[in-house]
């Protein structure tokens, strides 16, 4: 690619990203009140999205080969356990991450 083609490609990636981020606000903001259906989606979506993002992070984990997803399962269980016990976000995240690093570097 030439430099101008590269610039154009990066520009298109940025444009595609911005379109997906701005579209809902362009469609449903300003003078008119948000339609009730969209407002309903707005309050129903977060929990669904958070569950989707967890699955998204784990999408490349294979249950049937390698370590069978065990390090991920153990580290997530520890993260959740720590969080239910102490309710300290940073502690839960740090504990789970260190546990995962130790597991894949030393055990699996």
């Amino acid at each position: 690619m030439t430099l101008s083609q590269q610039t154009f490609t990066v520009g298109l990636c940025a444009l595609a990203t911005m379109l997906t981020r701005f579209l809902p606000f362009l469609l449903f903001s300003g003078k008119k009140p948000t339609p009730r259906y969209v407002a309903y989606l707005g309050s129903a979506l977060p929990a669904a999205i958070f569950a989707m993002l967890v699955v998204y992070c784990l999408r490349n984990v294979s249950l049937f080969t390698g370590s069978h997803g065990l390090p991920e399962a153990i580290a997530i269980a520890l993260t959740a356990g720590l969080h239910l016990w102490k309710r300290q976000m940073l502690l839960s995240i740090a504990g789970g991450t260190v546990c995962y690093m130790l597991l894949i570097q030393l055990v699996f």
């Binding site: 690619m1 595609a16 997906t20 989606l41 309050s43 999205i49």
Partner: peptide, 27 residues
């Protein structure tokens, strides 16, 4: 090789989840 239309569509597909974020953050 340079294929702008394909790249733009790929970008939209990869980033489509942001539509949900916008709807959830409207308020």
């Amino acid at each position: 090789p340079f294929a702008p239309v394909t790249y733009f569509c790929m970008g939209l597909m990869i980033q489509a989840r942001h539509l949900f974020y916008g709807i959830a953050m409207l308020d």
